[in-house]
């Protein structure tokens, strides 16, 4: 169904300021902020000194070459890095001015409020219905009608019409793009405040990618979205603000540590970057 077509969005390389660029405040009204954040894997420092604020109901894109630590940073924003042996965060990540790594903070509650969509669609080997209901069931969410919750989540993820007649069938019967929208539906079903997306379209074809991008624009009205992407056109198309990261080798060890180079409105980053490295990267001269 979802095949390549001549009008694939990825081919439109035109970089334009997002329409909201003008209306966007200079500084984001940040719900999620990083203050001097370093992320370590054991003794290896993967990301260094990140200061960022993710604006309410904005889409923020994290871009940069491979190994620049953007996915690592993303995973530290909802404590998914806790699952990685030896991962450690220094500095402060705060959600609505509360340190999510603070004492007494339950990582599970953090992940409930700050959801995540992964690079490869990862539906559970259960029915479509059970995939959506899973989050509500495990978190003990009070729902008056699970059927309504499932329908609402699937509708918001623009998947309802395609799956409404096969809710009891395995999610593995869906195409890759549908599976990824299912994973988004699953995430919004538990009504988080922030959705983190880790290269959500990298395993998808251009049409499925376009659908997810449309969906992101739709979701942005109610959610704060942070997306990691390798696709600069995608960042230019969907993001309100863009943060560009790069990796700098350590002078003594040679280990490459990610640093934030530049952060600003997407139109400015792509149109008039302040840093030479940003300009080189977005114009394809490196990375």
């Amino acid at each position: 169904m979802e095949t390549n077509s001549p009008d694939q969005p990825a081919s439109s390389a035109t970089v334009r300021p997002t329409p909201s660029d003008v209306a966007l405040p200079d500084q984001p009204d940040a719900v999620l902020t990083c203050d001097n954040v370093d992320v370590y894997y054991g003794s290896f420092k993967a990301v260094e000194q990140v200061n960022l604020g993710f604006g309410l109901n904005e889409i923020t894109a994290l871009i940069g070459p491979s190994g620049c630590g953007k996915s690592t940073l993303l995973r530290s924003l909802n404590r998914m890095n806790d699952l990685v042996e030896g991962a450690r965060v220094a500095g402060t990540v705060s959600f609505m001015n509360e340190d999510i790594y603070g004492p007494g903070v339950d990582a599970i509650e953090v992940r409930r409020r700050i959801g995540m969509v992964f690079q490869k669609p990862n539906p559970f080997p259960k029915s479509i219905y059970d995939n959506i209901a899973y989050g509500a069931r495990v978190t003990g969410m009070k729902v008056s009608s699970m059927d309504d919750l499932v329908e609402e989540a699937l509708t918001r993820a623009a998947l309802w019409d395609e799956v409404k007649d096969k809710l009891k069938q395995s999610a593995y019967g869906l195409s890759g793009g549908q599976q990824q929208r299912l994973c988004i539906a699953r995430t919004i079903a538990i009504k988080p405040d922030v959705i983190l997306m880790d290269e959500p379209c990298s395993a998808l074809d251009p049409i499925a990618t376009m659908r997810i991008e449309d969906l992101m624009q739709e979701l942005r009205k109610d959610y704060t979205i942070v997306i990691v992407t390798h696709n600069m056109q995608q960042a230019a198309r969907v993001a309100d603000r863009t943060a560009f990261f790069t990796a700098l080798p350590d002078e003594t060890t040679g280990n490459r540590t990610g640093v934030l180079v530049e952060y600003g409105k997407t139109g400015q980053i792509f149109g008039a970057p302040n840093d030479k490295r940003t300009e080189d990267y977005i114009s394809g001269r490196f990375g």
């Binding site: 992964f118 559970f124 989050g135 495990v138």
Partner: peptide, 8 residues
Amino acid sequence: QGSAALGA
């Protein structure tokens, strides 16, 4: 990971 990200 998917399960953990949903608050399980």
